[in-house]
Design a protein around this nucleic acid. Structure first.
Lengths: 144, 144
DNA sequence: ACTTGACCTCAAGTCGACTTGAATTTGTAC
DNA sequence: GTACAAATTCAAGTCGACTTGAGGTCAAGT
């Protein structure tokens, strides 16, 4: 298997070299060795970085990402914790959808002040509170 | 209309007093006056704080929230910008949904290593794909 | 042999959103 | 009129995720 130096990894992943070093230091990824001083990485690091990127976009801290998927990409974590995280995400998705609706509404509503618009106020209340009942379909396009 | 002092606002909104002061300093909210040194707020500040909370949950920076809804809660911003934000949110929701699917999958998949599971890799690629407007994401959450 | 440029380490800096602490000023309660 | 809790200001600290900078090392090309 071909080994990559840090600039190669950086180029292919779009992640800054300094960030890659940072991730290694934090234990999210591992270099397979060195040539002189220079780190060498296996191909799998690209997948791991993609995973890290995704986790970050989802708003997880590096430490959380690290515990979600083990250092080798395997799940060393309890099922329950994973389900909890998934539920967290569902909640966060609801928040985002609320805000999106609210913003679209603001863009269209003719009311002089948004706070005077009952629809807006409803959306606001909806976004701030947690209703265990409503499971909205928020995702566009692709199904699982 | 009844006026609230900061501790009342804090209690009713669940926002720390220090945070409320911080928001005022940044211009996201305004106190309507003082009694001695003490700030007095109108009822509307509660709605504004709810709005700020929501915006934060959606991953927006305070400055962004400030420009989204004017100081008085009115939209002083262009429609186009609002639509753009809404689109950002849609994109972010997709990311979250991808990660959620991935996590649920990890919790259930029997494959020895997730990277060996084609379904997992598909989900990873799906979540990692770059949209043209997707520059450096420095902050957690949405760009712009 | 030597210069170059990519890479290294380690410390310190940055940015956003607050929090914390110290010193001070009130309005109210006794 | 004095004590007290609650507010105030302002400066500095914290946390996460990096970035930046200074100074050092090394393999490869000329």
């Amino acid at each position: 298997m071909k080994l990559l130096d840090i600039s190669e990894v950086s180029k292919q992943s779009g992640t800054a070299a300094s960030a890659i070093r940072h991730y290694e230091e934090k234990g999210l990824i591992t270099s397979v060795g060195r040539r002189g001083l220079k780190r060498l990485f296996g191909q799998e690091v690209l997948d791991q970085l993609a995973l890290i990127e995704l986790g970050k976009k989802a708003g997880f801290a590096l430490d959380e990402i690290k515990t979600m998927f083990g250092p080798d990409g395997s799940a060393s974590i309890s099922r329950q914790k994973l389900y909890d995280k998934a539920d967290d995400l569902d909640r966060q998705i609801d928040h985002l959808a609320s805000l999106r609706d609210m913003i679209r509404h603001v863009a269209e509503c003719p009311a002089p002040s948004h706070m005077e618009c009952p629809k807006f106020r409803r959306l606001l209340r909806l976004g701030g509170k947690r209703t265990p009942s409503d499971h909205k379909v928020t995702r566009r396009g692709a199904s699982l």
